[in-house]
């Protein structure tokens, strides 16, 4: 899922300082699950801002609520009144939600309350780790199911490098060396020959390096008839 973290209170306060009516919009999906922008976090932020404003003698009105998924227009549309009634929108979702609201209401100023961090896996309560960069061409079938693009600091295709020591990465000794992990996994599976296979340079075009990606699935798109809610005409 997408993992995000709330921005420091001072930074949030500064972004919304010039505005009186603030709509604080959370999201019940990824950012709720990673404890950053769900209903509880929205309520807590509103309370914290009220306290801060009182201490600093500022007056602002807050309207805090959460959407099922802020990255989907239908859900955003449901709260259009409350968005339009505000002077500024503080989005407590990942950047996708903030941009969805911003794109739908271009006259509204939408600011992010969270920093979107990564595609992460909850390892335990309160710990998330990055395991995918969304390169667009998954290769983990050849690396024992462990992604070296995301989990190796150098995104090496043929590792490990000389900085691997005792299974740790020289960049940060708290991080495990992805290629060490790959070696151990392949050994366990009796597929160590894959370590010897040279992986040719990767085509990075399907990744972000090829520019902004837009995925179009013709098979999934609705026909003109379906869009109007009419029956499918063969």
């Amino acid at each position: 899922m997408i993992v995000a973290e709330r921005k420091p209170l001072d930074e949030i306060a500064e972004m919304i300082a010039p505005f009186r009516k603030v709509a604080v919009i959370g999201c019940r999906s990824c950012v709720a699950i990673c404890l950053a922008g769900g209903e509880k976090e929205v309520n807590m932020l509103v309370s914290a801002m009220k306290l801060k404003n009182r201490n600093e003698g500022r007056e602002q009105e807050f309207d805090g609520f959460v959407l099922e998924r802020q990255c989907e227009k239908e859900w955003v549309k449901e709260v259009e009144d409350r968005i339009l009634a505000s002077d500024i929108v503080l989005s407590m979702s990942c950047s996708l939600g903030a941009q969805t609201v911003g794109d739908m209401y271009p006259h509204k100023i939408v600011v992010p309350g969270l920093n979107t961090k990564m595609f992460g896996v909850p390892e335990e309560q309160g710990v998330w780790s990055e395991k995918c960069l969304g390169c667009g061409d998954c290769m983990i079938s050849t690396t024992g199911g462990i992604c070296p693009i995301a989990r190796c600091a150098k995104s090496m295709l043929n590792g490990p490098c000389g900085g691997s020591s005792d299974g740790h990465c020289e960049v940060n000794l708290d991080i495990e060396c992805a290629w060490y992990a790959i070696h151990e996994r392949l050994k366990l599976q009796g597929r160590l020959d894959l370590m010897e296979t040279v992986r040719p340079p990767k085509d990075w075009v399907p990744s972000h390096s090829g520019g902004r990606r837009v995925l179009v699935r013709e098979d999934a798109k609705l026909t003109q008839h379906q869009k109007r809610g009419e029956e499918v005409v063969e």
């Binding site: 019940r28 699950i33 404890l35 769900g38 209903e39 509880k40 976090e41 309520n43």
Partner: peptide, 12 residues
Amino acid sequence: GCGMCVGICPSK
């Protein structure tokens, strides 16, 4: 009835 889940539930 310890309330731990109540306090931590991100969706309230």
